[in-house]
Design a protein around this nucleic acid. Structure first.
Lengths: 186, 186
DNA sequence: GAAATTAAAGACCATTCGGTCTATATATCG
DNA sequence: CGATATATAGACCGAATGGTCTTTAATTTC
């Protein structure tokens, strides 16, 4: 059973924070106004819970894809393949709740800032870990330094999400990701 | 003299479309309600004009930075240096109107879709041109193909804008951009 | 200087916003 | 069963939304 927070997350994800009205949330959660406010306080608190859920899902997925017991290059490939998937067709057009929230609310809401900032740090750390292991195994191209390459990769995938909003073409995303990886693995 | 459209652009840029209320626009443009509606029709039309202005400014800047008469690598460095600048401190926290609009409105507004899509195409074409000239001059790293590298670069800089919303650190942006370029130029 | 045009100020409109509250129905449980 | 807790539907609230319209002031043009 999908939780009310997850259903709310879906709505915020599709429409953004400001464009999501209470009736949208009521419809999606199948809760009455009273119940929703009793359970979550207000729209902003519910949004924070939805964002936390989104982040938890993303980090869990990364922990699987970039598991240290796995071949690091395979992990990175799987990780990027996930982005290609989420960037194609309807998924791509829907975009990414984190990127949308960063652009819509960051800088004006301290709670949001903390969450977005720490997510990107966590993401970068996981990628840097995988790249370090790849380097130790001699799989990285000459001159690639794991920590700066991780920053580049994070920017690259988040940028993919932006461009994918209007051009969610799987074949191009795939080719772009492949070409990107070619520059970093030897 | 700054135009009313540019002043409106500033507001939309700082707050986003939905979070910008009419009084914000009146204050910024110093127009009365009646005059604003007489001149621009409605909020949405004004937003489109503001977005067009933003795009025109961005493309003009790119045309200067990536001018074919210039050394292509220098041009690309200047182009990326501009991103470092716009990504640092208050500029970074303010973000990019195009990225914010892509995330907030693309997929739900055909006029917006067209503009965002064609902007990214135009941007990619200019970068691809500069990379082709660099390749012809033998300045690109082995195995770098201009058109796919251009797609990667566009994603990278747009991703920079996203991450820069919560971590607008000049030194890191600069280092990341430098490391990025190192992978592509020989 | 008078007439005509333009713009400003802000009252006004219906609608919608996020949020509260009450009354009714539905379970739960002894 | 009856009593109690829980969730529902939806009326209701003040404030704010985008947008219109009228009245007044300023400017232009003859």
């Amino acid at each position: 059973m999908e939780s009310a927070v997850e259903r709310a997350m879906d709505v915020f994800w599709s429409r953004g924070y400001h464009a999501t009205a209470l009736p949208d949330l009521l419809r999606a959660t199948k809760l009455s106004r009273g119940s929703l406010y009793a359970a979550f306080g207000d729209k902003h608190s519910l949004f924070l819970l939805a964002l936390d859920r989104y982040i938890a899902i993303a980090l869990t997925r990364m922990d699987i894809e970039l598991d240290p017991r796995r071949e690091p290059i395979d992990g990175l490939r799987a990780y990027l393949a996930g982005y290609v998937d989420r960037n194609s067709g309807a998924n791509g057009r829907r975009g990414c709740l984190l990127v949308a929230t960063a652009m819509e609310l960051a800088g004006r809401d301290a709670e949001i800032d903390r969450r977005i900032g720490s997510f990107f740090k966590a993401m970068e750390a996981r990628v840097a870990g995988a790249l370090s292991r790849a380097e130790a195994a001699g799989k990285l191209a000459d001159g690639v330094e794991p920590s700066s390459a991780a920053r580049i990769l994070v920017c690259f995938v988040e940028g993919l999400r932006v461009v994918g909003k209007t051009a969610p073409t799987r074949i191009i995303s795939q080719a772009t990701v492949d070409a990107f990886l070619d520059r970093f693995i030897g």
